[in-house]
């Protein structure tokens, strides 16, 4: 009899998870499984990313549904917290400690065998000065982000949840942090990084969970998500000296689904195939002897991208 080979069990799993605060629904019926490697939680501010991360780390209790980490409920099982490292979004730290004391404290509370050595390694990993005697209250935003990461990894956790960890870092630091996330992911750890910056997530080159309005709007490889986003219907304003003729030409080519003349030199068109539209607009203008003065997407901000993904 052949044996069915099951894949590795998910390291983090959410099943029908919702979270509400009074009348406000922060997370609504979200389900996903996350394994080893880097996974990005992408979504606009207020989408519910931090609430999801907090539930994964046991800091908040789901109003409905179940979150498990390594098969355990992080709210009920204190021991599983020893396998989780988290860098929360807030900047506040134990400001009366030095960076080294702060990370050593984390190691001590995680019962690490040699907290001093573990803290040294973690601080070096995030490239902070091991001998910096200054209190955390004097740290810059970038230094705070890095020391938060150091305390999250000091006990060599299996699951690492990082809430907007790249905020406040300069480009070089961002690059190095992303490399670190990849390294941790390739070591078999489950690294979950939240971000509201699309380009940032692109550089993670990882699996993406798109969270918008508290719901899981999309999930998959970043390229799939990017394609979804690029192919969504767009409303585009075209400034030209011949708006009527150009709109008719685009309708004839079947690349727009509607149009509206806004002014003598302005037409707004709707397209459900932005790629085809981009290819067709210049030839159509040339055929009509029209000058293209400006092409401007009207709903190309990240919010509208997420809105589209939710309503899709």
């Amino acid at each position: 009899m052949s044996q069915v080979q099951a894949g590795p069990p998910p390291m983090v799993q959410a099943i029908g998870v919702s979270k509400w605060f009074g009348d406000l629904v922060a997370v609504s019926d979200v389900s996903f499984s996350i394994g080893a490697g880097v996974t990005a939680l992408l979504g606009p501010n207020g989408a519910g990313k931090s609430t999801l991360l907090r539930m994964m780390c046991g800091l908040a209790k789901p109003s409905n549904g179940v979150v498990t980490v390594l098969g355990k409920n992080p709210r009920a099982d204190v021991a599983v917290l020893g396998r989780i490292g988290m860098a929360p979004q807030q900047e506040s730290l134990l400001d009366y400690l030095s960076g080294r004391e702060f990370v050593e404290l984390a190691a001590q509370l995680h019962h690490v065998d040699n907290p001093v050595e573990a803290a040294r390694r973690a601080i070096q990993t995030v490239e902070l000065d091991l001998d910096d005697p200054r209190k955390l209250s004097t740290y810059s935003k970038g230094m705070r982000q890095r020391i938060k990461l150091a305390q999250a990894i000091v006990h060599d956790p299996l699951v690492i949840a990082l809430d907007e960890p790249l905020t406040g870092l300069d480009p070089r630091q961002r690059r190095e942090m992303i490399q670190l996330f990849h390294r941790l992911g390739s070591e078999g750890k489950c690294v979950i990084v939240s971000s509201h910056v699309l380009d940032e997530v692109e550089r993670f080159g990882s699996r993406v969970l798109v969270i918008a309005q508290g719901r899981l709007a999309a999930e998959g490889d970043f390229r799939e998500i990017r394609n979804l986003m690029d192919d969504r219907p767009l409303r585009i304003s075209i400034r030209t000296d011949q708006p009527r003729a150009l709109a008719i030409a685009l309708l004839d080519r079947g690349v727009i689904s509607g149009c509206r003349l806004e002014a003598d030199n302005l037409v707004v068109v709707d397209t459900s195939d932005p790629t085809a539209f981009r290819r067709a607009v210049a030839p159509a203008a040339r055929d009509q002897d029209a000058s293209l003065l400006e092409l401007r997407p009207l709903d190309d901000d990240l919010e509208s991208v997420f809105r589209y993904l939710v309503m899709r």
């Binding site: 800091l59 730290l93 134990l94």
Partner: peptide
Amino acid sequence: EDRTLVYVWLRPVPR
């Protein structure tokens, strides 16, 4: 108040 309890609470320490 200053949202630093998280650095104590997140550890495997009985409440």
